[in-house]
Amino acid sequence: MPSSIFFVSVLLVSILTGVLSKPYFTDRVFYLYEDTYKFANEQDRLVTYHSSTSDPVQVRTDDELHRTVIIGGQSYGIADKSVTYSTKYRVTYPNGHVYSVEDNNGMLLGYDDKGNIIMDIQAYSNGERIKQEGEEDFPPSALVSSAYPSYHVKRGMPGFLFLALGLLIFGWCSFQYQAFQDLMFRLSPQRLNYENPVPSDFYYFTSKVGGIVVMIGSIFVAFKAY
């Protein structure tokens, strides 16, 4: 009976976790500092992205080579200046400052008008971002990333959930079933050191304790998926 309850519970929790987690793992997102944005809606070439922690971001496609990112009522112009074998963008800020952004094998690097690379360094105090002298509200590379869905990414590593499920079942079997404990004993290379070895009471005790540890550990592994 305990085994039936365990496996039914695991099945139900696995299905519920999969259903609730699917949007997290499948929705493509982009980041502006600590805020995460995902697609909300699109209307008349204007795409809106929502974040649970900040105001919406809108991206307007002006033409094939120009887009406008709108954040907090401020407009940032993005121009595609790509040439053969080189993907580049020009980013124009509301204050008139102009930066360039280059795609280096999928990594976006921003440069100022003197060709100096812009380091994306974030400083916070009591949860509030502290702007450095001369720092823009948003890095040019982040604005380009928000403007083009091809730079949006999927979150998390769902493989950890499958690993956690396997560890949970392994831990339960180690804790609950003597036949499984015996099997693990027979597979252990240590038994080759003895003639006609048999599991001791201490071995069964440590198997149960180890099973509990593995089941607890599977919870931490599952959280690494997010």
Rank of each mutant, 00 (worst) to 15 (best):
R129S: 01
Y124E: 04
N95G: 04
R67D: 01
K88E: 08
S75N: 08
T92N: 03
G106W: 03
R67H: 08
I121Q: 14
M119R: 15
P94N: 03
D113T: 07
V91H: 04
E42M: 14
Q43L: 10
S51Y: 09
I70P: 08
Y85G: 03
D44S: 15
D44R: 13
H50Y: 15
Y89V: 01
G110Y: 07
Q74H: 10
G127T: 06
S51M: 09
R129K: 14
T61H: 11
E42A: 15
Q58M: 09
M119F: 15
D112S: 03
N104R: 13
G110P: 00
P56I: 02
D103R: 00
S86N: 08
G106E: 03
M107G: 02
T53Q: 14
V47K: 13
L108I: 02
R45F: 15
V47L: 11
M107C: 10
A123L: 08
D120T: 13
D62Q: 13
Y49E: 00
Y99T: 00
S52L: 15
N126F: 14
V59S: 03
V47D: 04
L46V: 07
E42N: 15
I117A: 14
H97Y: 05
I121N: 14
I117N: 13
A79I: 09
R60M: 10
I118K: 12
S82H: 07
N95K: 06
T68W: 08
S82I: 01
G77K: 13
S52G: 09
R45T: 04
Q43D: 06
H97V: 09
V83M: 09
S54H: 11
T61W: 06
L65P: 03
I117F: 12
Y76R: 00
T92A: 01
Y89R: 01
N95P: 01
D80R: 01
D120C: 07
T92E: 02
I117H: 12
G77L: 01
Y89A: 00
I118D: 05
A123Y: 13
Q43I: 02
V91N: 00
I118C: 03
N104I: 05
T68L: 06
S82T: 00
A123R: 12
P56G: 06
M119W: 12
D103Q: 04
S82E: 06
R67G: 00
G77M: 04
V91P: 02
T53L: 11
S125E: 05
Y99W: 05
T61M: 14
S86P: 08
N126P: 02
D63R: 11
R129Q: 07
Y49L: 01
L46P: 07
H97A: 11
Q74W: 04
Q74C: 07
L46D: 02
N105S: 04
G77D: 05
D113P: 06
T53W: 06
P94A: 02
G127H: 08
S82Y: 12
D55F: 12
Q58C: 04
G106D: 02
Y89P: 02
K114Q: 11
Y76W: 09
H66Y: 09
V69L: 03
S75E: 11
H66E: 10
V91F: 07
T61P: 06
